[in-house]
Design a protein around this nucleic acid. Structure first.
Lengths: 247, 247
DNA sequence: AGGAAACCTTGACCGAGATCAAGTGGACGC
DNA sequence: GCGTCCACTTGATCTCGGTCAAGGTTTCCT
């Protein structure tokens, strides 16, 4: 139920390569092949990794940093359609060209595989295809959940939804769980948040100020956020506070 | 680039079962197995096929009629997240329960497969998994395109986007192509359109009237639509009129 | 240190679309 | 024929969020 579900790392601790997104069920032979066709690429904050419509000759996953998927209309209106966090997969097996712009919002490292050999491997290896199907279904769920946010939520609920998603991801990553306050740094500018939420950056700024005034969040500087009560934040987001998240 | 991309039927003309969504590359053995585990179900217009959260013990595809996928918030706000047309696939291999309400908006027939045997077959048959991956990627593209509609388009553009999608689907289904006027019946009520577009039904009604007044569409009664110029409609939708569609 | 460029905040005003309300028109049952 | 229901249309008004504008902070460069 997160925006881009992180891959479960549990059964990959001893994985000889880091491409956990794909090798959830490690198998020595496959990994050897993957190892042979893989390479790393680094990008600077702000750099465009892929332009919409470009030929894509690789697939891969994010090792560190954050990237965004965005669509743009001819008149310049833009909508972010996905957020890529470490371990998220990029690329469309079986597709020629990219459908969206992929932009690094922070310095970023990607682990890439040349597309053709990867597809060959996928065709020979059923559980890689199945793994990718599961990941794609997760992304589809996330996209559809976001459609509800974009279509029906108020500006305040939109902001709360985004903060809640980031807070919960960070909380589960740091293994401290959801009891007690959650502290994190916003990985996005106000403008990027606006592009994600279908708002203007002014509205984002105003609503964040409002949530701060109402003590739903605490702000130190512009980016450092403390969420004293995640339940309260999820209420503000219009979410069911017990949607399988508090176990 | 449609809302829910229809499956290409070209290489399935002689398919012994009608479940074309899955058997794009027909293979006698698999089809025999599929034949054994399949059954049909009929639904009346307005009937809910699956409730969000229900156990789903089948997967399947739409044979005839139209269904919608919707999400609902506790306070009753609803957002449609997908439209299921004939040959569209329903179900999540590897998932326990449904994530959305599935509702028949017209009388509907589905071709179903019991989930467990279907999954077993999928695990044994790489190209079924690959086929499903392709279909899921298509749905993901459609969902993300819809995020742009929901997040950034005006009411008029939203209506034009929806009409354009339905018009283009009907045009390619009837094999008359996109030259000349396109005629079709709206398969959705104003309220359903509103739920899809993140609008109210009053706004939908007003914008349809406006498009009619401006001769972008012609209306006979409430549902019968003629699109004299699909290029004009796509312009109104804010789409690139040559996005690979006029070929 | 000074200056410029990002990034963010806040205020004033405006308009697209929501809301509330009344009315139309066709289908159906009695 | 007549009433009822449902889907839809149209009008009047309100409001949330967009737009335009000004100013504040931080960072980084010279």
């Amino acid at each position: 139920m997160t925006l881009n579900t992180l891959v479960d790392h549990a059964n990959c601790e001893d994985c000889p390569i880091r491409h956990r997104a794909v090798c959830a069920r490690c198998d020595a032979d496959e990994l050897t092949v993957l190892e042979e066709i893989k390479y790393y690429r680094s990008f600077e904050a702000g750099q465009t990794i892929i332009w919409s419509g470009d030929q894509m000759n690789f697939v891969g996953s994010v090792v560190s940093g954050i990237a965004t998927l965005t669509q743009t209309m001819e008149d310049g209106r833009t909508q972010m359609v996905g957020l890529l966090l470490p371990s998220d997969f990029v690329g469309r097996p079986g597709r020629e060209s990219a459908a969206y712009d992929v932009v690094a919002t922070t310095d970023l490292v990607m682990c890439c595989f040349r597309k053709k050999p990867f597809e060959d491997l996928m065709n020979r290896t059923p559980h890689i295809a199945q793994r990718l199907l599961q990941m794609t279904l997760d992304e589809l769920d996330a996209a559809r959940e976001w459609m509800l946010v974009l279509g029906r939520k108020t500006a305040r609920e939109k902001i709360a939804s985004l903060l809640s998603i980031i807070a919960r991801r960070d909380a589960s990553a740091s293994a401290k769980g959801l009891s007690g306050p959650i502290v994190f740094d916003l990985p996005l500018t106000r403008e990027a948040m606006a592009d994600y939420l279908g708002l203007t950056l002014e509205t984002v700024s105003r609503q964040i100020s409002a949530l701060k005034k109402d003590k739903v969040i605490l702000l130190e500087g512009k980016r450092h956020v403390t969420v004293p009560d995640i339940g309260r934040l999820m209420e503000e987001a219009g979410d069911d506070a017990d949607g399988g998240c508090l176990v």
